[in-house]
Simulated scan of single mutants.
Amino acid sequence: MTFDALKPQVKDILSNQNLSFEAQLFEVCKLLEHHISYYNWVGFYFKNGDKNELKLGPYVGEPTDHTIIPFGKGICGQVAVSNQNFVVPDVSAQDNYIACSVTVKAEIVIPIFVNGENIGQIDIDSNTADPFTEADERFLEFVCQEISKRISNNS
């Protein structure tokens, strides 16, 4: 399924009033992991209150021990500090990579902004080397923007 075909489904999930926000995020994870063959782990991390750390939110894929990630550590922790997308074509080439699984070859992390503040991120691991393109980045930015709208409309 193409990214364009997935966009209305993401919007539908995030506007489903019968689901809690956590359930909506979990459904988005399931949608992406199911329809994009090289998305092998899809999850969200959010700023943990006033602490300089991220806390694992809904995800789909292998269980992870990384439920709390300090800012600056790993790819997710670096995105929490830089506020920039981070595409890693080869995780073995990264000095500051936190390995979740030996099968992971690549990772992409896109921040979620609400009112200009980085409040979290979507994190995707792939068991395929160098699978992510600019199209993935643009699509995941769209997903993050839709999540930001959902948060803003309900706060």
Rank of each mutant, 00 (worst) to 15 (best):
M1K: 03
M1S: 15
K7S: 06
K7T: 13
P8V: 04
V10N: 05
V10M: 08
D12Q: 15
L14F: 06
L14R: 07
L14Q: 06
S15H: 15
Q17I: 12
Q17S: 13
E22Y: 14
L25S: 03
F26L: 15
F26M: 13
E27G: 01
E27P: 04
L32C: 03
L32Y: 14
H34R: 14
H34L: 09
S37K: 11
S37C: 08
Y39A: 00
W41P: 00
V42P: 02
G43W: 07
G43K: 03
Y45T: 01
Y45R: 05
K47T: 10
K47C: 09
K47P: 02
N52K: 13
N52I: 03
N52F: 10
L56A: 11
G57R: 05
Y59A: 02
V60K: 15
I68A: 04
F71H: 00
G72H: 04
K73A: 06
K73L: 04
G74S: 05
C76W: 02
C76I: 01
N83W: 10
Q84W: 06
N85S: 02
F86E: 01
V87P: 09
V88S: 04
V88F: 04
P89W: 06
D90E: 11
D90G: 00
V91G: 02
V91A: 00
S92F: 14
Q94E: 15
D95A: 14
Y97S: 05
Y97D: 08
I98R: 05
A99H: 11
A99I: 06
S101N: 08
S101Y: 11
V102H: 14
V102T: 15
V102W: 06
T103C: 09
K105F: 05
A106R: 09
I108Y: 02
I112A: 08
F113D: 00
F113S: 01
V114M: 10
N115C: 10
N115V: 07
G116D: 13
N118T: 12
G120W: 09
G120N: 12
Q121A: 10
S126K: 08
N127W: 10
T128S: 12
A129S: 14
A129Y: 13
P131Y: 09
F132S: 01
T133E: 14
T133N: 12
E134N: 09
A135G: 14
E137F: 06
R138T: 13
L140C: 04
E141F: 02
C144V: 04
C144A: 11
E146W: 06
S148Y: 03
R150L: 00
R150C: 15
I151S: 10
I151D: 10
I151E: 05
I151W: 11
